[in-house]
Design a protein around this nucleic acid. Structure first.
Lengths: 239, 239
DNA sequence: GCCATGCTTCGATCCAGGTCGAACCGACCG
DNA sequence: CGGTCGGTTCGACCTGGATCGAAGCATGGC
């Protein structure tokens, strides 16, 4: 019966409302304290404490001391990616799961996926990059073109420096709300932080929502010609 | 608190021993009856029946009638991939999870990952393909070289026909036992079924184990020069 | 030293959900 | 038809684990 490692414990761990809420909250990429996570999940401190202990024990979270606070964060991009994968799975599952609310709306529009941009604008950016020849899809992979290097430099991102980081340079990540790919990896992270730097958008406190100013969204869209272009027939869904 | 879709139910579903056992068993790629799954998981028929109903409802499984049997199978490659992802997560999690047994040994050596080859031999093949220039890694992706086309043809696989299938042609999949990549996608599936056709290995009944004959393993290794070559410094672990 | 704050541990409670026996349904066979 | 076999539904049981109140322990500030 027991084929393979104990996937069971791991999944059971995620399959609890309070813990999943905590993990979801941490998907914003920030490190948070136990109390904040407890509030976010709507449980008491002591309950959250026991949950966090379990998540730590299983290596899903990391923790760091700072003064009398303990800051919890996701253990790494793999964890974030696993969670996003799970989310990407559910709509197909639930059949017709209707849009759940207006707060959800903002989440679908633009959100943080650990360290890069996701949601409607996330895939817009990704499509735009493909359409404008910044990225090219080769077989199942992604490559930054020479033109793309210039494009990023004009935006104020040094792709060479980014590529020196010891992690996957660029890759795609399936967007659960759009069910299409968006840009992840070091390049995706760099792009998001540059957007923040430029003041086009800001993280909404205590949420994964990335709130774009009107001007910011205009600027973003102008990067790709502004007009809503459907670049090519929707490319077959990798992964 | 409820950010995103209900990942909770999905994870909770997987996080149960009986259900996980069923899913694991189905990773072999076969369709099985409720009774077989019940035996595999070590529970009674009625228990498994209720589990299967839930898995169906959530879209993780599909079912087909045939005579008085109902054959259950994984809903698709995405599900299989999700499960492998979870498995790949656990070792890092559990810290030092020792090799659990001798039956496990065979599983680590060579097993079926839904429709392609995984385990020690799986990554051996993948590394060999890279080392011999059959596949090339481009940025984060994978591409079949011209030489590779010939290589596959010599093995009796028409890569053009394979590429016409409406699904990802070739991609990598993280191996949970080896913690390295192996080949997946349509190409990976074609390779596995060709190996079976050639009689180099056979599926072990009721298990994910792929049992290689001695001659079969020799043949497989001879595809890449036979000698155990470590091709290049271990390529950085994508994903 | 004292108190406040952030967090964990302990103990008790309580309930969702996994489990199985038994009955039920439906398809196929002789 | 009855009989067998695969599968599901029902009801009852029982346990694992989530939850919270209260107490215990740190750390930091005064």
């Amino acid at each position: 019966m027991a084929e393979g490692p104990n996937i069971v414990r791991l999944a059971a761990l995620i399959g609890d409302n309070a813990r999943a809420a905590a993990l979801s909250t941490l998907m914003a990429g920030r490190a948070l304290t136990a109390t904040e996570l407890a509030d976010a999940a709507g449980v008491t401190r002591q309950t959250m404490s026991s949950h966090l202990a379990k998540l730590l024990e299983c290596g899903l979270l990391q923790v760091g001391r700072q003064g009398k606070h303990r800051y919890f964060r996701l253990a790494g991009p793999e964890v974030a990616h696993l969670l996003e994968s799970l989310m990407g799975m559910t709509p197909a599952a639930q059949g017709s799961q209707p849009l759940t609310g207006p707060r959800d709306q903002a989440l679908r529009k633009a959100r943080i996926c650990y360290d890069h941009l996701a949601g409607e604008l996330g895939v817009y950016v990704y499509d735009g990059m493909l359409g404008n020849g910044v990225l090219r899809q080769v077989e199942d992979g992604l490559r930054l073109t020479d033109h793309g290097q210039l494009w990023f430099r004009r935006l104020g991102i040094d792709t060479h420096r980014v590529s020196r980081v010891r992690r996957t340079f660029c890759r795609t990540c399936l967007d659960w709300s759009e069910r299409r790919d968006h840009l992840a990896g070091a390049l995706g992270a760099a792009f998001l932080s540059r957007i923040e730097e430029l003041g086009w958008a800001a993280r909404l406190e205590g949420s994964r929502v990335m709130a774009f100013s009107e001007a910011g969204e205009r600027s973003l869209r102008s990067l790709f010609g502004g007009v809503d272009q459907e670049p090519e027939p929707p490319i077959r869904c990798v992964r």
